[in-house]
Design a protein around this nucleic acid. Structure first.
Lengths: 210, 210
DNA sequence: TAGATTGTTAATCGATTAACAATC
DNA sequence: TAGATTGTTAATCGATTAACAATC
């Protein structure tokens, strides 16, 4: 499928649309107009229509959008309409927090392995599966053809580990380490730099006083 | 201090500059030009100079920027040049992960309390302090004049808890619950919607195939 | 001084908003 | 059919990049 490049701004908003549509379904709402959705999401109706029309005409004049249909279409766009096996590297509190998010499993992200170097953690359970030693990562990633890995280890170790993971076939890195990793072009990284997020909050908290 | 509104895009980048300056200091680098920094950060030199000049002329023609000085200036802009007491609501894995991030303490975010409703967790330690019952939140927030709270509880409970916190004097919410909270204008929210982050990664992971 | 690099203005690019004809 | 609301083009707004005089 050939189509024009989608901007980062649009991609940023897509999962949020998905979440709102989920909520609408839970509330039993069957159809919604861009105007009504714009009020709930604090966006303009124009932006919603522009965003969606990057991917296709999902609405109907005079009617609006069918909630369940749009929900499914966005799931397809985000590729969460299938099972996405993933692993978590690092079984500290953060790794375990991710392992236990039932939300992820619900959206097709199936936890296939969680790894740690700490012998005290190995063998215990997290997210319903046993924590494995990192030496077993290679075999599992290759055998299960896993493409997604969450990095929940200190930045000092993450460079080496990520290089290894990529050599095993990992193509998507969900990075929680406080470092910007260099990766080949075919690998995508989504950074979650929590300390930067907290600093932004700090800035905005004091902004009004200036 | 009256000055023109700073755009969200700039605020987004500020903590990243701070992190790179920290790294430069660790490497013993004393001065850096916008050109050299732009290469490391994969930005344009022009953007760096534009960003910084929103807050003042921190550089010197023919020399560049003094790393330690710029680092301190950005700390001031972000308000992490002082101690910011904070609390964490929810002592599950995520709450405990945040409580144990030494990075936060290093940047002046001092954990004053961590709360939970689960009796099994209460009394145990997280981040060097005892987990308290949520009934004690009000007293602590008021006594210590705490402005910052991290929300690590399920979305179903977070609406009520956040309303309460705001009534106690909290003005900054670091929200990890999967919901967009409605708050009065004087309260700022920084959302960390992890499931949305994972969906963005999923989109980009499959994007090339289309 | 000469060279380097900033601060800042102007030009460009891209994203958001407005408007409206098409159409359900 | 009439009213509502989309899809889409055009206008506006804002952010990024380029250029260069100022100056250390």
């Amino acid at each position: 499928m050939d189509r024009k490049e989608i901007s980062q701004a649009v991609i940023q908003r897509l999962p949020r649309y998905y979440r709102y549509l989920e909520d609408l379904m839970d509330q039993g709402i069957e159809r919604i107009s861009s105007g009504e959705l714009s009020k709930r999401m604090h966006l303009t109706a124009s932006q919603i229509r522009q965003d969606l029309n990057n991917f296709g005409g999902f609405g109907q004049q005079g009617y609006g959008y069918n909630v369940a249909n749009l929900h499914d279409e966005i799931a397809k766009i985000l590729n969460i309409d299938r099972e996405n096996p993933m692993i978590i590297v690092g079984a500290g509190h953060l790794g375990q927090a991710l392992a236990n998010y039932t939300n992820f499993q619900k959206r097709g992200f199936i936890l296939k392995g969680i790894f740690d170097i700490n012998p005290e953690r190995i063998g215990k359970e997290a997210g319903g599966i046993k924590i494995l030693p990192m030496t077993e990562m290679k075999t599992l990633v290759k055998k299960e053809k896993i493409r997604l890995a969450a990095i929940c280890i200190p930045k000092s170790e993450s460079i080496k580990v990520v290089d290894d993971l990529i050599s095993y076939g990992i193509e998507g890195i969900w990075n929680f380490a406080h470092i910007d990793l260099d990766v080949p072009k075919h690998v995508v990284i989504e950074n979650v730099h929590l300390s930067e997020s907290l600093m932004r909050l700090s800035y905005r908290l004091f902004e009004e006083l200036k």
